[in-house]
Nucleic acid binder design. Structure first.
Lengths: 120, 120
DNA sequence: ACTTCAATTTCACTATAAGTGAAAAACATT
DNA sequence: AATGTTTTTCACTTATAGTGAAATTGAAGT
C-alpha cells in the first residue's frame, strides 16, 4: 500500500510538480529544509515532503518570509521566539499595537498638533 | 512619574542608543515595525519602543529573520502560521524531523547503499 | 512674509540572500 | 573504458536591508 510518507518521487518530478528548479531543491537541502531519502546517490521524496515544500513556498511567497525564519518558526516555534521573549517585550508589543491603532485614528482625523494621551 | 510607555526620546537618541542609523528607524516605520508619537512632525519614542526594537534587531541578527517574518510572527503569531497550518503539514514536519535524524545517523555510519526503513 | 535651522523624505547606491543556468564532476551500468 | 544520468560547483541575476547625501518640508523667530 502507498503511504504519504513513502519516499518514492525523484527530484525532477517533484521540481516539476512544484514548478521550481531542481537546483532549488538541492539548495533547500543545504538548509535542511527537506531531507529526501537517498538510495545510492539518487534522491527520493515523499508526498509529505511535497506538501511540506508547498507550505514553505506559501510562507515565502504569500507571507514574505525568508528561509531561516521558516526554519526557526516551524522547528522551534514560539519556544525560542516568544516563550523566551521577555515579559516586557510582550508588554511593549501590546503597547505598540495600541499606539498604532491610536495613530491610525489620528491620521484619519488629521489633527497633528495636540499630543495624544497615553493608553494605560 | 516616568513610565516605560512614555514617548519622550527623540529619534537621534534612540538611533545612537541602538547603534543604528536614524534612517533605519524611518525605514522600520514604513513597515509599521514601530510607531513613535509625533508631536508636530518630530518623533518621540518610549523606553518600550526601544526594548521592542532591540528585540527586533536580535531576531534579525541572531536568528536571521527578515522584517516581514518578524511582523508576521509577532503580530499574528502562530494563528496564521501554525493554527492555520493543516494537520498533514504538521505531520509531514514530524516525519521530516525523524527522517533528518535518521539521515544524520546514516551519514555517520557512512553506509549509503541499502535504503533506510521508514520510521512510522 | 521671509529666513533659518533641524527633521524628514527622496534618490541612489551597496551588500547579502534567494534562485537558477551551464559546465564540471561523480557514480552506476553496460 | 564509454555512456548516461545525477549531483555539485561556479557564476550570474534579482530582491531585500540598509545607509549617505541631497532635496524638501515645516516650525519658530524676526
Amino acid at each position: 500500500m502507498f503511504n504519504e510518507a513513502d519516499k518514492s518521487y525523484p527530484i525532477e518530478l517533484v521540481a516539476d510538480f512544484l514548478g521550481i528548479n531542481s537546483r532549488t531543491l538541492y539548495y533547500y537541502e543545504k538548509f535542511s529544509l527537506v531531507c529526501p531519502l537517498r538510495r545510492g546517490r539518487k534522491r527520493y521524496y515523499s508526498k509529505e515532503d511535497i506538501n511540506w515544500l508547498e507550505y514553505v513556498r506559501e510562507l515565502m511567497y504569500e507571507h514574505g518570509m525568508n528561509l531561516r525564519s521558516i526554519i526557526i518558526l516551524i522547528k522551534r516555534r514560539d519556544a525560542v521566539i516568544l516563550d523566551r521573549c521577555p515579559e516586557d517585550v510582550v508588554l511593549c508589543f501590546k503597547n505598540y499595537l495600541a499606539r498604532k491603532d491610536n495613530m491610525a485614528k489620528k491620521i484619519k482625523i488629521e489633527e497633528e498638533d495636540e499630543p495624544v494621551k497615553d493608553v494605560k
